[in-house]
């Protein structure tokens, strides 16, 4: 059987909100080492990769590896019934066709349970090699959200260029053009306000803004976001989810015709 309890249930709510617009359904794979998900959007342009480690949960037990086929809009409907301060326990028997979610209020005076129907989903797994990136940029998640929101109102695609001057986001559209440059900045006493640019070599890539904006649905999960860029490779947009794990979004670039 599988059983996992997380006292900070709001994290689970935020995770599902972060990915439900991008992917309709997918297999959450449970194993003794934790929970993971890899799912592509319907156009196979971007991919969500979620890793939640067993030791990040208050309690975690999994006797047998199994995929749990989840329809994320339905998962979201049920998680919306959990209070923000509730502890959430997930339970499934081996080869079950449903996932039980139990919500406990923080003073344990309200307990509710819901069953989510599981689906059988044929999913393919993409092999994503570990690699060094030409540029890795850490910035406040709220700053990333602001940039992609602002630029989406101007254009459809963004050129992201990382140089020793900083990281520049450029777009253009019917109304005109926009450029936002962030410089390396660690002056704040608060680490979450830092912008850290780790540049091995300059790189410039073009991406569809609507996906980058969609990734910012994960903003509530982490104070910082990391962008990783290498020439001719998908960008990686990563949010650390506390001690629990991380959610990564991969987006294939736009390429010259």
């Amino acid at each position: 059987m599988f059983e996992a309890k997380i006292s900070q249930g709001s994290v689970l709510k935020k995770l599902v909100e972060a990915l439900k617009e991008l992917v309709t359904e997918g297999n959450i794979d449970v194993s003794p080492s934790g929970m993971s998900l890899q799912a592509m959007d319907s156009s196979h342009v971007c991919l969500v990769s979620l890793v939640l480690r067993d030791d990040g949960f208050d309690h975690f037990r999994c006797d047998r590896n199994m995929p749990m086929g989840i329809h994320f809009a339905n998962f979201s409907k049920i998680l919306k019934c959990a209070g923000n301060d509730d502890a959430i326990t997930l339970k499934a028997e081996d080869n079950a066709d449903q996932l039980t979610l139990m919500f406990e209020s923080s003073n344990q005076d309200r307990i509710s349970d819901f069953d989510l129907k599981l689906m059988s989903i044929e999913s393919e797994h993409l092999g994503i090699p570990d690699q060094d990136y030409s540029a890795e940029i850490k910035m406040p998640a709220s700053e990333y959200q602001r940039i992609v929101r602002d630029l989406t109102s101007i254009g459809d695609t963004v050129l992201i260029s990382a140089t020793k001057e900083g990281i520049k986001f450029s777009t253009s559209g019917d109304v005109g053009t926009a450029n936002v440059t962030l410089r390396h900045n660690t002056t704040s006493e608060k680490q979450e306000e830092h912008t850290i640019i780790d540049l091995k070599e300059p790189v410039a890539l073009t991406f569809a803004l609507r996906y980058l904006k969609n990734f910012s649905n994960a903003t509530a999960l982490a104070p910082q976001v990391k962008l990783s860029l290498t020439k001719d490779l998908p960008i990686v947009v990563e949010y650390q989810v506390g001690e629990l794990g991380n959610i990564r979004f991969y987006l294939a670039p736009k390429i010259d015709d």
């Binding site: 991919l47 797994h125 010259d256």
Partner: peptide, 14 residues
Amino acid sequence: SPLQAHLYDYFLAS
């Protein structure tokens, strides 16, 4: 305008 690449252009399905 530039073309949108697919993930399959970069990552192998297994």
